[in-house]
Nucleic acid binder design. Structure first.
Lengths: 73, 73
DNA sequence: ATGTGACTCCTAGTCCGTA
DNA sequence: GTACGGACTAGGAGTCACA
């Protein structure tokens, strides 16, 4: 599984869990709204600096965005 | 703590744990030796694609490279 | 076996729109 | 509120020579 795909899913899941829109997240993370959209659509391979901004905005540890959900199926 | 600094330390630690030189790792990850050196010196904020290559070469899960060591001092 | 400067090239990331 | 496009700029990707 491509890491950026996993990241994309985790990002969206974490965002929705926080009840934030892409716009909200973009504002909090000081990133562009359309870029958040692109990330969730797996367009880009974000840098650590971006991952750090996002994890802070989402109030979670960065490594959580790279973890596979423990689904035994 | 800047995420790229944490990553740099974890990368080096994981590499040494495997008994690999920067050259070895560069070869396995299909990256340039000097680029590995730069990463360990915190020059760059690597993208997920690079992190993926490195984690595969080091035979560990990518998220481990973003985790803070649990040192209570 | 690693650090560093000086490059070139290409993607990450921004900003403007429209639907 | 999100997807998607075009045009743009910043900075990462990748290489080389040399210490």
């Amino acid at each position: 599984m491509k890491l950026r795909n996993l990241f994309a899913r985790n990002l969206k899941a974490a965002r929705l869990l926080k009840g934030m829109s892409q716009e909200d997240l973009a504002y909090e993370a000081e990133l562009d709204r359309t870029y958040i959209s692109a990330l969730e659509r797996r367009i880009y391979s974000p840098s650590l600096d971006v991952i750090e901004k996002l994890s802070k905005a989402l109030e979670l540890d960065a490594y959580l965005l790279l973890m596979a959900p423990d689904k035994p199926d």
